[in-house]
Design a protein around this nucleic acid. Structure first.
Lengths: 359, 359
DNA sequence: TTTAGCACTCAAGACCATTAAGTGCTAATC
DNA sequence: GATTAGCACTTAATGGTCTTGAGTGCTAAA
């Protein structure tokens, strides 16, 4: 991107585009002879060779070896994606499939993301990724207790990220209705909207006193439960589907290369890092070494985040070799993620702001 | 197993064992010359060759080609596992690691299974699998409602498999405390312990009448929610960790073979099928084509289920090439799964049966 | 029954020639 | 000055031949 692409002649653009298109669909290096027959203009192979040499000097093409044709470089793909690529026209069948999915509203977000990713993988024939963000719970906003039968009750906690968590508390002994009510009151008084750091030993013993003898023994396990809820996987979850599809591409027939990528997919943190530092509300395209994970040198990562307000709550995308059908993949990721985003936005309208509804 | 192994002479056993041990650690076919120097008895290479030829006739050994040494067949491995293998002595370090994990009791079962599987993968250097069974919810045993602030309430459902599920119900309009109480009563009256098949349209309208005008509109979304809870992923969840580790074994340097296995891992249903039809409370070892998935011809699957009462609630295990360090893997899977099982059993004791405690 | 010895087999590696694709460069042409 | 024809050159891929080495099976002797 630190590149200045403007000074490309029309003819060079045509040639570059033809090379990339041919390489994307065929996977082989593209030679001058092939191009003489597959260009909208008719020029000789020698001219094409000269142009290709210049495009190579500019860093847009590469040669695997002297007697081979040319292959797009990462910069070449980048240029293609930024300024050459034609928009992909989705077929009715594809749109139908996508719509069928996004119609089923009542699912939970992570289910939607996962099935969207699955569909995306099927359509593009690459590996799909689904990221479910986890807006970290910082505090509990409300406690409720619910008797569940002999010897146990349910502790319901509403969290600051508008979720609900429950925990079954097994107390071997009997707890009276009175005690349970007092317990609920005490929890709401002492632990609501409270930072974990502030829960000191003296606070705990104060709670134990306040709740009375009968239920005092329950305070400790409950505090532990609160701790668990707040600290649970704040990193979010990243899932991949269809990793086996990668193996059909010749760029991964070298087991060493594939192993590197598979390692990154297994470890997850590198990719998680990329996803969580990406731009919101637009398609992110990381081509080859653009994503700093060096083991993904010849892989491309394409995704778009799903936001709620200004929080990133998820992302879906695709991972595959640099030689990727960019226009189709980008169109698919875009369409699908936009639809999910819209669902989110619509859902949001209902409970909160009727003001916007009225406008 | 349909094999009769008894008629193996002591010497044949020694030779077979030596071949398998050598092959497991080295990965190469084992020849007669090597064995002359690595057997507790001293016999000539010619004798060994004769014995090996017989072992091959019996189906315990195989020859990649005429001028190569011998390699254990799947039956060979099976015999090894059933009657030859020496128990693996875990090192203190390994036991420590395992214990550290199983000490942290308060985790949820799926977390425990996953981290156990992860540890197991690290220790054995194969791919680990963790299966979290899902005893299907057949009915809801109790409903509770809980007001959650403006315009929404929480529906808490206790299910027949002793779990708790919640669902936030957004009602745009106001619902009085009275209506909410009536709603709860109606739900408990009409939907508790009721098979989904019995929920007919006329039942629904009866409920709508019973609950009163104000909350009638809520019945439908709630019934939908119940439906979702009951039908949710009854199949259980199967997760793999460290798939990339497989690539370090030469048997998967052929990309075609690996692709097959990876496909099975991705699709999951075949392996899920094997796991869910396995024997309870013992180590299951599926060597090569013993697991009917033909793409796993040269892979071995080792796991043990975790049960609660007589229900299978989970499983952990390992997947790798047939040439596997069986004694170590089996020991590890066994130790770890037994500990988790014990945790489960102990947990169970607390709330339910003090009778057993007294004994 | 065991063993020494020998002929035989086969995969793997080294070496070589051939082929085909594609290039870069020069000189002629438009 | 841009384009093109033509040619020498480079290189990967393919396939053949030879050699080597590990390992076997079989026979005959111990």
């Amino acid at each position: 991107m630190s590149f200045e692409f403007k000074d490309l002649s029309e003819r060079k653009k045509l040639i570059l585009q033809a090379i990339i298109d041919a390489h994307i669909s065929g996977g082989e290096p593209v030679g001058s002879k092939y191009l003489t027959q597959n260009l909208p203009i008719s020029i000789s192979s020698a001219t094409i060779r000269n142009e290709m040499a210049e495009l190579e000097d500019m860093g847009l093409l590469e040669q695997p070896h002297t007697s081979a044709g040319r292959v797009p470089s990462e910069y070449g793909y980048r240029f293609y994606v930024n300024s050459l690529m034609k928009g992909y026209e989705m077929t009715m069948k594809e749109i139908d499939e996508l719509n069928r999915l996004t119609k089923s509203k009542q699912e939970k977000l992570d289910h939607i993301l996962e099935s969207a990713a699955k569909l995306m993988g099927n359509m593009t024939n690459y590996t799909s990724l689904a990221f479910k963000g986890n807006t970290p719970t910082t505090v509990i906003t409300q406690f409720k207790t619910m008797r569940m039968g002999a010897g146990k009750f349910l502790l319901v906690m509403m969290t600051s990220d508008e979720n609900v968590q429950t925990k079954v508390i097994n107390h071997g002994f009997e707890v009276s209705d009175d005690s349970l009510e007092r317990l609920e009151a005490v929890l709401n008084k002492y632990l609501c909207n409270v930072d974990l750091e502030q829960v000191t030993l003296s606070l705990i013993s104060e709670m134990e006193r306040a709740v009375g003898v009968e239920a005092a023994a329950l305070i400790n396990p409950i505090v532990k439960g609160v701790y668990d809820v707040i600290n649970q996987n704040a990193a979010g979850e990243l899932k991949f589907q269809g990793v086996d599809r990668l193996l059909q591409y010749p760029e991964f027939s070298d087991i060493g290369r594939f192993r590197g990528l598979l390692g990154a997919i297994e470890k997850k943190d590198d990719i998680l890092d990329i996803v969580s530092h990406s731009k919101k509300d637009e398609i992110n395209v990381y081509i080859g070494s653009e994503n700093s994970v060096d083991v993904m040198n010849n892989s491309t990562l394409i995704f778009r985040t799903i936001t709620q307000g200004d929080k990133v709550v998820g992302a879906i995308g695709v991972i595959g070799p640099c030689r990727m059908d960019y226009s189709k993949v980008i169109a698919t990721v875009d369409y699908l993620s936009r639809n999910i985003q819209q669902m989110m936005d619509n859902d949001k309208l209902l409970p909160d702001k009727e003001s916007e509804d009225k406008k």
